[in-house]
Design a protein around this nucleic acid. Structure first.
Lengths: 330, 330
DNA sequence: TTGTAAGCGTTATCAT
DNA sequence: ATGATAACGCTTACAA
């Protein structure tokens, strides 16, 4: 459908080399010849076929990004930033979405690699040795955001563990006597990568050690609202706060509370993780931990490009600063 | 870095044709030869270069999707659906994001076309004759979602105009005496495509005609909250409802109200458009119009694939059903 | 069973 | 100023 250099050459009765010179402005071309070439090119709306070009000089100048279901919107937010940063350096960003399915994720990553993306950014759902080998077999730089897969693959993250410790500090300082950590299932039957949650949990456990009088509990179930209910029902004369490993959990708890006529911080304290964008629409303002999405995205892209452009690179673990946001729910 | 058919052929001392036959399981290959080829391929993790393959048979089996800033999340929601539908038919989906910038949008679309996407899905920010010509110059099928660009380009949408009329009916039936339509700036200095809002506005105007006693007003400013304030301040003895052309507007109004100690429906009625996913986290439950994101996405993909696969196709305007959702804010 | 040759659209090198 | 040729990696006839 689209016109090619060869076709232009034929129409103009010159060789394709001449056409190229005219089009790309390199080398010298007869004035009249050039004019005619440019006219035809314009008329038929010539555009270079980037597949062919890439095939030729072995570079696509494209990055692949695997993102997940909108539920976990904290990653979706980064897409714009990634796109902008990549563009600054002349790279095109190809995003694919993976609806929380391990097999799909691999399939999509493979699809990106097969399409010759020069590097891949991913907040992985998969984990383990097999996945590590898979990523390494791609033979292109891969950067993990948040979730860690292996030391052989660069991860950009915030120090979730100490963030959780500080969150505990804050909650304790506010005078809560019982603190409940809410996170995804830890037994994790599906084998999903919940590294960040594990880190936060570790931080939580570490954090409460400092407060021997503090009661604590961990809720790590798919169906966590009934457990929350139990906690509230059992509530005696002490104040309880829920520290949720992810703002969505916290929002669900908040919504659940509203249905029961409970509000925070009056009836219980509530704190999330991630500081997702939609929080600005939520009342009361959720206290949370900002995991610095923007910084992580910028760093991840810059690191990826570095790995692409330097023949030699070594995997790293990069930590960015987080921020404890004490707002209205504690 | 990755191994190619030629390299395998060389290693095995056969021609690349033989290697291809072994790899693709077509034609007959000597048992031993095949075994050796497969081993080398496995060892070096051979994967066909899809750029080369596409270049060869003129098909990429890929779709491009242009999506916008997460603010307008109503489109982001569709991505998963689009991806799944495309995959069912064997297509790969490449998403790019455009942060509300007219130039960027064109650039990204061109980038997708240059990379030989076979079709493009877009909820366009651009509009007008120039943009229409641009899209047509791509020479590949383009489907617009929501916003209309030209009759020469297929649009999939819901009937926003009648939806707005019905919304007015609902609000009037609830006994409101003053109804204020909130939408983006209509003078629209940036030349952004606000077709859906224009349609809704038209529906609003049509709708109120049926209720001569109903007071009404239109707020179409970037900075609309002060105008809302004025409406509330001027409020006499009649009940006011805000019909917002987009749930984000409604949520902002709700948040604004909360800051002022006002709540709906006690102090004013509130209704949105789109039924974006995050509404489930919002209290009180926002009354809104479901613009059937899922249906639109599925239809758009199926229509796009049809246009890709049939040489001859004619642009259409496809309308899907919407749904008035009367919840708690009216 | 295996190989040769041409082609997809672009680019780079070397001649004329 | 212009052209011929080979190359990128894969595919598909068409031989041998």
């Amino acid at each position: 459908m689209a016109i090619t250099v060869n076709q232009i050459a034929e129409k103009c009765g010159v060789s394709r080399t001449t056409v190229l010179r005219a089009l790309n402005g390199k080398g010298s071309v007869g004035k009249e010849t050039k004019k005619q070439i440019m006219e035809i090119a314009k008329e038929y709306n010539y555009r270079p076929n980037l597949l062919a070009r890439s095939l030729n000089h072995g570079r696509t100048m494209s990055l692949g990004v695997v993102t997940i279901n909108v539920e976990n919107m904290y990653f979706v937010q980064s897409l714009n930033i990634i796109n902008k940063e990549a563009d600054k350096k002349g790279y095109f960003t190809n995003i694919v979405v993976c609806d929380e399915n391990l097999e799909w994720e691999r399939k999509l990553i493979q699809g990106l690699a097969d399409r010759q993306m020069e590097g891949i950014l991913i907040s992985p759902l998969n984990k383990g040795k097999g996945f590590e080998e898979f990523l390494l077999s791609l033979n292109i730089p891969v950067i993990c955001i948040g979730n860690h897969v292996s030391d052989a693959i660069t991860t950009v993250q915030v120090h979730e563990k100490t963030a959780a410790e500080e969150a505990v500090d804050l909650i304790a300082a506010k005078g809560y006597e019982n603190i409940v950590f809410v996170c995804p299932p830890l037994e994790n039957p599906k084998g999903i990568n919940i590294y960040v949650h594990e880190q936060r949990l570790a931080g939580f456990k570490e954090g409460i050690k400092k407060y021997p009088k503090l009661k604590s509990e961990i809720i790590g179930k798919e169906d966590y609202l009934p457990e929350i209910q139990k906690v509230i029902d059992a509530k005696k004369d002490y104040r309880t706060a829920f520290l949720c490993s992810g703002d969505s959990y916290a929002l669900n708890v908040m919504r659940w509370g509203e249905d029961k006529g409970l509000s925070c911080p009056r009836d219980f304290g509530l704190m999330g993780f991630d500081n997702i964008d939609m929080l600005k629409y939520i009342t009361p303002k959720l206290s949370t931990v900002s995991t610095n999405l923007e910084g992580v995205a910028v760093t991840a892209v810059s690191e990826l490009l570095q790995q692409i452009e330097n023949e030699q690179y070594s995997p790293k673990a990069i930590y960015l600063n987080y921020q404890i946001l004490d707002r209205e729910t504690l």
